[in-house]
Structure formats: C-alpha cells, structure tokens
C-alpha cells in the first residue's frame, strides 16, 4: 500500500510543480526553490511529517522533502543543544544527501563529457 501512496503523492507533487511553473511562467530553478521553501514551511507547521508517514518516499524523494528534513534536523538539534541547534541542525540533517551529491557530482564531472 505504501508503494501506491509513494507513487501517487510523489507524482502529484511533481504535477503540481509543473502546473505552477507553466501557469506562472516560472523558471525551473525558481519553481524548485519555491517548493523547497514550501516543504520547509509545511514541515515547520507539522503537516509534512504526516505526509511522510503516509507516503514514505513519495514525500521524501521530491525536494519539498528536503525542506522538511532541514526543519526536522533543526528540531532534533535544538532538543540536544538548545538554541545553538538552530545553526547546526539543518546541515547535519541534510549532510547525507548534499555530500553524496557533491561527491558523485565531482566524480561524474571528472568522468564524463557533455554530449550533443
């Protein structure tokens, strides 16, 4: 059942982003930033966590899930370290994905050439 929800929620989130981009004539970069911000806001309001429970990867794979993870990481860090957690939490939570993107990105950039 989780697989069905993952497909539906992940697909619907991307479809909504496409609709917003086409309707408001936004660039892809602006659309992605907007949705990451929306994910962080929804995470802060406690809404996004429920979506993750229901849809799993359907909510974590699209980038609004990245915004949510940042907020969640800050929450955890604040519980452990108090106010300083506001500064450390986001990067800690995002470390896995960002560092992977950085390393694989570097490797791919060195290994491949752009193709026509």
């Amino acid at each position: 059942m989780m697989f069905v929800w993952a497909f539906l929620v992940g697909g619907l989130m991307c479809a909504l982003a496409q609709l917003v981009m086409d309707a408001l004539k936004l660039t892809p970069a602006k659309t992605v930033v907007l949705f990451v911000v929306l994910g962080a806001v929804a995470g802060g309001l406690g809404v996004y966590g429920k979506l993750v429970e229901a849809a799993g990867a359907g909510a974590t794979v699209p980038l609004p899930g990245f915004g949510y993870v940042l907020v969640k990481g800050i929450d955890q860090a604040v519980q452990e370290k108090g106010v300083w957690g506001l500064f450390t939490g986001g990067f800690t939570a995002a470390a896995g994905g960002v560092k992977a993107a950085l390393l694989f990105g570097l490797a791919a950039a060195l290994a491949f050439r752009p193709k026509a």
Partner: peptide
C-alpha cells in the same frame, strides 16, 4: 505526474 511518481516509487 508519471515520471515524478515513478522516481518516488523507485525511492520507495
């Protein structure tokens, strides 16, 4: 919807 859903499904 289809492509985004497939990638999410892969993630799941």
């Amino acid at each position: 919807f289809v492509v985004g859903g497939m990638i999410a499904l892969l993630g799941q």
